[in-house]
């Protein structure tokens, strides 16, 4: 049986937990509450990929681009040249919606299809190997039924997989709730789930990281402490259990 091709995230601790990387073409749900590190994880994933010669796109729907870049400038992994050279592309989905003339609050079936086509076209034209949507929750709010959400994510995932593009979708959940999405659908269509949480210790919040699922991989399911630092970005350490 041929070995599955892996997308190496470039975050050594995460790649170790995964047994080398994420199967190429997977759609991975990155779940967490506000401040859990979802956006940083996605950006580091894209930047690391670009440094390995894999072009990436980051679609934001929750944060204006100037704020996103300002926040990322504090990290040593963030390299402006990769943005300027087009190896990492930052795109505001709300601007695309406006240009397509879509209702920015609610998408009809036709609107969703048009948006899907644009996303696929961008990924195809740029020959993107890594893609992130921040957040799929905000996008799903605009879709009007569970069927539309399921259909949208399934078609998006399938199209990107066909292009050998590995996709991160961020999912916003309330703090301290062990749930993977707001709509209860996203996790079933995704190939992988990364859960970013926190635990309270003496009033301080310790970030945690747990790999819940990764289709096609025997992976660790232990909960790790996640540390975000300006020097190294995201790092994992064994979580103390006491």
């Amino acid at each position: 049986m041929p070995e599955e091709e892996l997308c190496v995230t470039g975050m050594a601790d995460l790649d170790n937990l995964l047994g080398g990387g994420i199967p190429v073409g997977s759609t991975v749900l990155v779940v967490g509450s506000s401040g859990s590190g979802k956006t940083t994880l996605c950006m580091q994933y894209l930047v690391n990929g670009a440094q390995q010669g894999e072009r990436g796109v980051f679609f934001t729907i929750t944060e204006p681009l100037f704020k996103l870049t300002k926040n990322m400038e504090g990290f040593s992994f963030y390299d402006k040249k990769l943005i300027e050279s087009g190896m990492v592309n930052l795109i505001d989905l709300r601007i695309i919606s406006e240009r397509l003339g879509l209702d920015t609050e609610k998408y009809s079936v036709e609107d969703a299809a048009a948006l899907l086509d644009v996303l696929k076209d961008i990924a195809d034209e740029l020959n993107v190997k890594r893609l992130a949507i921040d957040s799929i929750t905000a996008l799903c709010y605009r879709l009007q039924s569970k069927e539309m959400i399921r259909d949208f994510i399934f078609k998006l995932g399938s199209s990107l997989a066909a292009m050998n593009c590995t996709t991160f979708l961020t999912s916003e959940v309330p703090p301290r709730k062990f749930q993977y999405s707001q709509h209860g659908i996203e996790e079933f269509i995704s190939d992988g789930i990364i859960f970013l949480g926190d635990i309270e210790r003496k009033g301080d919040l310790i970030r945690t990281f747990q790999l819940i699922k990764m289709r096609g991989m025997a992976h660790s399911r232990t909960k790790s402490a996640m540390i975000i630092s300006s020097n190294n970005g995201i790092e994992l350490a064994p979580l103390l259990k006491s």
Partner: peptide
């Protein structure tokens, strides 16, 4: 950030 962040401390020592 805090002496309660023991995992962070362990990681920084090794780093």
């Amino acid at each position: 950030e805090s002496p309660t962040m023991l995992e962070n401390l362990g990681l920084e020592i090794i780093n």
